[in-house]
Nucleic acid binder design. Structure first.
Lengths: 163, 163
DNA sequence: TCTTGCTTTAGAATCATTCTCATTCTAAGG
DNA sequence: CCTTAGAATGAGAATGATTCTAAAGCAAGA
């Protein structure tokens, strides 16, 4: 059953609705709610450790292991997306709309990029017949608006590295 | 510690040409050549450890650290591509043609998928104006021909998980 | 030959993540 | 309210991939 917690939220917010609907078979503990809430309020794709730091403001006693557990559960239940760019720490994202990630190689910022057109991977890349596509993981690497502008400035001679 | 470094390549093969042209400013040591050769002969996107094992057949004394060094250098000089699918070991790929990777979530196989049509990321995903795209990292997750066929068989009832 | 600097090596160190296990909490039944 | 089974939590250990360190090795130029 949808596990309405013992007493936490007096009125189900949009957030809780989402949690209730999508994670129907998951026990919604306060920690999980707060981990999710932190992600829902973030647009910067925080790492597990950053989530840990932010959740600590509300739940000072929470442990990093619990944050990892919560992130894993929420991800497994389709409430979060794990974002892996290169090697290094995983990042997490509560934006469940179909989107891809843009990674600024200069400042490290990660942006969501929404699809602006219909897109069928099988149309653009030749896969062996019979292959079944489950999901597409796209990371666009480059320079964000700010960094691209900075690099274009004539002030720095070393900027002439490449187009 | 037997390092037969005193012997440069006898005659430049196609492989060496490629190494010479692309890695112009890189010293081409025997170990680097062999690491590259192993990758050039592989189509299965081996991990660093798998490369290590294969290189050991030719250079029994090579260390894992050296393999990592070589992989890093070759990657930095544009002779190899590092492939990161989810978290876990990086894989390496000597196919420098524009392509993306298909990852079979059932058997773990990684296939190259060549573009079958012109493709402009900025056309399909809305990026802020001024953004500069350097490269696209696409991983198509799904089931390869063999695994998809197995799953479709009526023998296993649990296969009905999803379409 | 001597110097200088890159390469290689073994092992230690690092870092993110996962695991272990004792403890605590939750939901349901009495 | 009390009990109980099972899930969640926390602290710290363990893991595993990768990187770093320090000490040789080797190559090319002076």
């Amino acid at each position: 059953m949808a596990a309405p917690n013992n007493r936490p939220s007096p009125k189900p917010t949009g957030l809780d609705c989402r949690l209730a609907v999508l994670g129907a078979d998951m026990r919604l503990t306060p920690h999980r709610r707060e981990v999710f809430q932190v992600l829902a309020e973030s647009t910067d794709h925080p790492t597990a450790y950053e989530v840990f730091n932010r959740v600590q403001d509300r739940s000072p006693g929470i442990s990093l292991a619990t944050v990892y557990n919560c992130l894993e559960h929420l991800t497994n239940h389709g409430l979060l997306r794990q974002v892996n760019l290169d090697r290094g720490q995983s990042r997490y994202c509560a934006n469940l709309h179909e989107h891809v990630h843009f990674y600024c190689e200069t400042c490290g910022k990660v942006l969501d990029a929404l699809p602006s057109a219909e897109f069928d991977p099988a149309k653009f890349w030749s896969l062996p017949p019979g292959t079944k596509v489950a999901r597409l993981d796209v990371a666009i690497h480059g320079a964000c608006t700010t960094c691209a502008a900075k690099r274009a400035e004539p002030a720095d001679a070393t900027a002439a590295c490449q187009g």
